[in-house]
Design a binder for these strands. Structure first.
Length: 262
DNA sequence: ATGCCGGGCGAAGCCCGA
């Protein structure tokens, strides 16, 4: 069972690139972020033609998340609990029935939080607090669970080209990293780091200042696995080559393979 | 160097991202 996450930076602008990757990579389940369209404007037909079911939580202009699955998506939860008045479409979750039981998948678009001296950073930290509370609830289900998405947090200095330059940034601030560490401490596994100990492995390169050409990247797109999922983890990789395609997103797909055969 | 790209919106120029 191949499960992927990808911040596509507008599904409308990126549809050809995204479909090309889906045809090649053929993930069983995919978490998309920054679709930047309203729910009913999501290009469902294009994905259905490839055999996918779609669960979408969209929003006009900004944010927006989706779950795509070759199998039926059940028990869809739209939005992260605990956010009374939070209008930003940043979380969708669903359950996929497999031969070896339920697979629960969440698609996360965590707030950026910059600049850090504003309420944007406060919103980010509060959102992370809500995510921790929700992950703690999900832990009790003892299911195969994958929380995939654009976390907008650089876990460690080895996950950024220039840690010094990023030290004050909301993506690398200690408060953000501490909250991500709390997620891990709930018993979740960073799938990529469970499979790859090489430093300087990135999932995002800015469009500006030749960041891609200079390999000035950061690793902020993560797949966090429950113990039941981590036990089934076979591989995890970053599809870096996609960043060199025509009209790329600034993020690339990250995927893992779980053994759900039995 | 926060605004060098790139997208949304909407029809010029501003908001936003990481």
């Amino acid at each position: 069972m191949k499960i992927a996450t990808w911040n596509v930076n507008s599904i409308k602008a990126r549809i050809d690139t995204v479909l090309t990757w889906f045809k090649q990579a053929s993930p069983d389940v995919a978490c998309l972020q920054e679709i930047k369209c309203e729910t009913n404007a999501f290009p469902r037909l294009e994905f259905e033609a490839l055999g996918y079911n779609c669960a979408v939580l969209g929003q006009k202009s900004y944010n927006g998340v989706a779950l795509l699955s070759k199998h039926r998506i059940e028990d869809v939860r739209e939005g992260l609990p605990g956010g009374a008045g939070d209008e930003q479409a940043r979380y969708i979750e669903g359950v996929i029935a497999t031969k070896s039981g339920a697979l629960r998948v969440g698609s996360i678009y965590l707030p950026n939080g910059n600049p850090p001296d504003t309420d944007k950073f406060t919103y980010k930290l509060k959102w992370m607090e809500r995510l921790i509370v929700h992950a703690r609830e999900l832990r009790e289900y003892e299911e195969v669970l994958v929380l995939g998405g654009d976390y907008n947090v650089i876990p460690m200095a080895e996950d950024v080209h220039d840690a010094q330059a990023w030290s004050g940034d909301a993506l690398f601030r200690l408060e953000s990293r501490r909250h991500l560490r709390r997620m891990i401490n709930l018993g979740l596994t960073d799938a990529f780091r469970a499979c790859n100990s090489e430093p300087q492995q990135y999932s995002f390169w800015d469009y500006q200042a030749g960041a891609w050409q200079k390999n000035n990247g950061i690793r902020i797109d993560h797949l966090l696995l429950s113990p039941q999922a981590a036990d089934r983890l076979q591989s995890c990789a970053i599809d870096k080559h996609v960043r060199a395609w025509e009209k790329p997103s600034d993020h690339v797909p990250v995927w893992c393979e779980l053994d759900m055969a039995a």
